Simulated assay, not measured.
Amino acid sequence: DIKDGGAFISDGYSQKYNIEVGDEVTLKESYGDKKYNFKVEGIYDDPATIAVYLTDSDFIKTFELEDGYFNGYFSNTKIKDIDDLYIATTITKDDLTKTSRQLILSMGSMISMFATAGVIMFMLIVYLLSKVIIEKNSQSISMTKILGYNNREINSLYITTTTIVVIASMLLTVPIVNVTLKYIFKVAFAQYSGWMPYYVPAKIFVEVPLLGIVSYAVIAFILTRRVKKVPLDEALKNVE
Rank of each mutant, 00 (worst) to 15 (best):
K80F: 03
K131F: 15
L128E: 15
S169I: 10
D45W: 09
F63G: 00
I213N: 00
N71E: 11
G32K: 15
D58K: 08
K98Q: 10
I87L: 05
L103G: 07
I50C: 08
T89W: 07
S142D: 07
E135F: 15
G32A: 13
Y53H: 07
L157A: 06
T62Y: 05
K3E: 15
I60E: 15
L171H: 00
S57T: 11
K35T: 15
S10Y: 03
T97M: 10
M113D: 10
K136C: 04
E240H: 12
G194A: 11
L124I: 03
I164T: 06
G148V: 05
P47E: 13
G42D: 15
L236P: 00
N238A: 11
E135T: 10
D23Y: 13
I91G: 00
A190V: 00
K145N: 07
K237T: 06
Y192K: 09
T160M: 06
K16H: 03
L147K: 10
I222W: 03
L85H: 11
K228E: 13
Y192P: 00
M113S: 15
F38L: 08
V166Q: 12
D94M: 04
Y216R: 01
I91H: 01
Q15M: 09
I133C: 09
V21I: 14
S75E: 07
F74H: 12
K78T: 08
E153W: 00
K61N: 10
S10T: 07
I87E: 04
V239S: 07
A88K: 13
L124P: 02
I82P: 05
D11G: 13
V52Y: 13
K186I: 06
I222Q: 01
P231H: 04
I184C: 06
D1L: 05
Y198T: 04
V25F: 12
G68R: 01
V21K: 13
V177D: 00
D83W: 08
K34A: 13
D94A: 11
N37I: 15
I60Q: 11
V165C: 05
L211Q: 05
S109I: 14
S169T: 13
F8Q: 01
T162G: 11
F189R: 12
D1A: 11
L65V: 03
L105R: 12
S142R: 10
Y199L: 12
K80G: 02
F63V: 02
V214I: 14
A48N: 14
I91R: 07
E66R: 04
A190L: 11
L105G: 00
Y69P: 00
V132S: 14
